[in-house]
């Protein structure tokens, strides 16, 4: 049930029968933008022979790889913000509902999260393009990783969690369910897809009060209500840090790989 207090946000979070919500749509397909921009960033230039012409110019070698990443990120940011704000504009025009200041802030944070998330995929695909010799290899490798995180990671997480903390019968279910759930969640959060989805659904739904397991006695005496913007942000701050760290690790990998690489034409 949608809350009338945050009507405007439901523009982004409501899904129809066959149409996924804007949010889950971005979570699933946003990475494609990053992958498309980065998968042949370095190896196609190497194959075309422009890379060794480029490195022979009096420029620092870092500026090539940093430039590629920043240019891609700028394009991603332009796409994401335009798209998000465009959706909002259409919503205002069609429904006449105006966003409150807090809603606008939440949308802004959501879009920023999205940029970092897609930039992570960009950095990852650039890394593959540094490591792999052919553009086709790096494209396939990064798409494989994307499919794995988006679809199979949750399977793997539940299989592992069930193996470690079995919940097959009633007794085990009672003893292990907390640990099982926590492990499952922890493993899922390795996946940037899950991390992002969890973070943005928290930001976009002020009713979400916790991202972890809540026990009954923690709920005793709790007053049902909305979380303020600051509190929502606090809840997903680790997610943002984690995503940014993943992005930096991926970019760091491509940076080091590129700097140590020997640029030859064949």
């Amino acid at each position: 049930m949608k809350d009338s207090n945050y009507l405007f946000l439901s523009l982004y979070t409501t899904s129809g029968n066959s149409i996924p919500s804007f949010m889950s749509f971005i979570a699933l397909l946003g990475p494609i933008i990053g992958l498309a921009l980065g998968f042949d960033a370095v190896n196609s230039e190497r194959a075309a022979g422009t890379l060794n012409r480029l490195v022979a110019q009096p420029i620092y070698r870092d500026s090539i790889i940093i430039g590629k990443f920043l240019a891609g990120t700028a394009v991603i940011a332009a796409i994401i913000y335009t798209m998000g704000i465009g959706i909002g504009a259409v919503g205002v025009l069609c429904t006449g509902v105006k966003p409150s200041g807090e809603e606008a802030l939440r949308i802004l944070v959501f879009l920023t999260f999205t940029v970092v998330y897609v930039a992570f995929w960009l950095a990852l695909s650039i890394w593959f393009s540094v490591v792999c010799r052919h553009a086709a290899t790096s494209a396939l490798a990064s798409i494989a990783l994307w499919v794995f995180f988006a679809i199979f990671m949750s399977l793997v997480a539940s299989i592992v969690a069930n193996a470690v903390y079995p919940i097959g019968d009633e007794y085990h279910a009672m003893v292990n369910s907390y640990n099982n759930y926590t492990l499952n969640l922890g493993l899922n959060r390795i996946s940037p897809y899950y991390l992002y989805s969890e973070a943005v659904s928290t930001i976009m739904n002020p009713t979400v009060r916790s991202v972890n397991v809540v026990t009954m006695d923690q709920l005793v005496g709790a007053v049902s209500g909305y979380l303020s913007f600051g509190q929502s942000l606090l809840l997903v701050w680790p997610h943002l840090t984690g995503l940014a760290a993943l992005m930096l690790i991926a970019f760091g990998g491509s940076y080091i790989g590129f700097m140590r690489q020997e640029i030859r034409s064949n």
């Binding site: 012409r53 009096p58 064949n266």
Partner: peptide, 19 residues
Amino acid sequence: PLEVKGIVGYLPDNVGFYP
């Protein structure tokens, strides 16, 4: 390397251009 690249022109084999 930067100073060197400033005064040396390098024509690699199989030179390529942005198509």
